[in-house]
Design a protein around this nucleic acid. Sequence first.
DNA 1: TTTAATACCTATAAAAAAGGTAGGAATTGT
DNA 2: ACAATTCCTACCTTTTTTATAGGTATTAAA
Lengths: 135, 135
Amino acid sequence: MVSKKCKYAIKALIYLAKNQTRDSAIFSSEIAFEEDIPKKFLETILRDLRNSRILQSQRGKTGGYRLLKQPEHIYLSEVMRLMDGPIALLPCVSLNYYAPCEGCNETLCKLKTVFESVRDETLSVLGNTSIKDLI
Amino acid sequence: MVSKKCKYAIKALIYLAKNQTRDSAIFSSEIAFEEDIPKKFLETILRDLRNSRILQSQRGKTGGYRLLKQPEHIYLSEVMRLMDGPIALLPCVSLNYYAPCEGCNETLCKLKTVFESVRDETLSVLGNTSIKDLI
DNA sequence: TTTAATACCTATAAAAAAGGTAGGAATTGT
DNA sequence: ACAATTCCTACCTTTTTTATAGGTATTAAA
């Protein structure tokens, strides 16, 4: 399941994308109020998005957040990986968070090929859907 | 991610399928030992599988477990739903565990259609892979 | 230079879920 | 009667999720 944190991140990104044309940066408090997201929780989410160069931030009295990447280049797969970790359902088939299965012969394990298929099908959707598509 | 509980269930089912031809039922202790699954934990898993008519059990000294459904009719989607709940990544697109999204207009929400696609693609794999396919 | 409003940072905490155990009751073939 | 099993309820521990508290650093404007 997609976590609340991840849903909040997507909502915030959509909000920022819709209000991109504004002159000033957008306060986290505004996003929190408009999208009904706990303020302090949202701050940690926006910081993560800034750290991975999806947003840029400005400090001080007239500070706030802006998109750094354009909405059409922010894919759901990227946001979900950032917030929730792997897309894959097994660590041993994860592209970005690979970890070996304990006590399972990967060359013989037939589960592996099944969950590689699931991963590929899932990524073909999430890797082709951007924030722009959600507006 | 698939939980350990679910992996244990799949392993146990594969073990039972491989040893189907035996005269006697198979002890949970044997499965636990052979597949390296905590014994007491496995008992609760086998009970769930029996309650949903995938296994049948026999009590007493010569008791044990047997498959009730044939391996080719036990699909991963069924086992995963039983162990981990919904396949879908959002409650509002779950076929078997539907729950409305709070504070999200479902008719307008574009996330919904995206995650319906993910669900359908995932089910097309998991709903067509049986325990027999994993042996 | 003060002030006020913001982003930023670290630590903490409450709630839920995952993973597993304990102890014994009920059942059944020998 | 006995031994070995399934079955059942309750509990426990650790990890993850979902936040909150309290303050520091930064910046524009008064």
